[in-house]
Amino acid sequence: MEEEITVDIVYTIWLRHIKRYIRSRSRIIGSLGMPLFFLLVLGFGLNSVVDLPGMGQDYMGFLIPGIISMSVLFTSVFSGIQIIWDKQFGFLKETLVAPVSRMEIMLGQTLGGATTSLIQGLIILVFSLFLGLNISNIYGFLVACAFMVLIGLSFTAFGIAIASKMDDMHGFQLIINFVIFPIFGLSGALFPLNSLPSWLQPLTLIDPLAYGVEGIRYGLLGTSQINPYFCFIVLAGFTVFMMTFGSYLFRKIQI
């Protein structure tokens, strides 16, 4: 089948994703639980004992962009992996047998995942306003949103790539423990990257989320450890790569 892309079809897939998201209130609340817990416990618990020299920030302020990225990361990976449910409950067949291209389906799913993760990130952001976050300029806010969208797109595609290769949810815990948590842990969401021992630092540099966290941090706080332009280029590159890779695997799904 030729890979033509119609906005209508992409919109249809996107719309279904959004409808399902809005309807699953327990999932929205459930997936807000962990980031809020981290924010409150770590933020308040460590605020007085952690001193971040040269950052002009207390720990709570430092932590907020990290937790926003966390929320976006988890929501987007979950969104992508949902395709496994579609596979198991048969709905994917209905989509795949329709006269639409796989690229359209993939794009709709990815945009849907990115949208819901942006919403989740924004909810944490709004909550953070009560914890001392100060958004002084709209430009910074938009920069943060752009980075959230990139994280959302790339990791939804990442989830779809995984889902394309898995037949059921059995391997899911494995992915969370050995892939998603390391990506989160090494991203500098919870602590400054340069506080890690030097042998661990190269690992953080190949962690795409690190550039997302730093980008959001730059947008919200105005300071970052990595140049924000560089962050943007790396993360945008990763997004393009992930979406290409994801659609490649998605196209090979057999039902």
Binding site: R20, F89, G90, F91
Partner: peptide, 12 residues
């Protein structure tokens, strides 16, 4: 086509 296994979206 109506598949052997169900292919509806239950959440819709």
């Amino acid at each position: 086509i109506v598949f052997q296994d169900q292919s509806l979206d239950e959440e819709l």
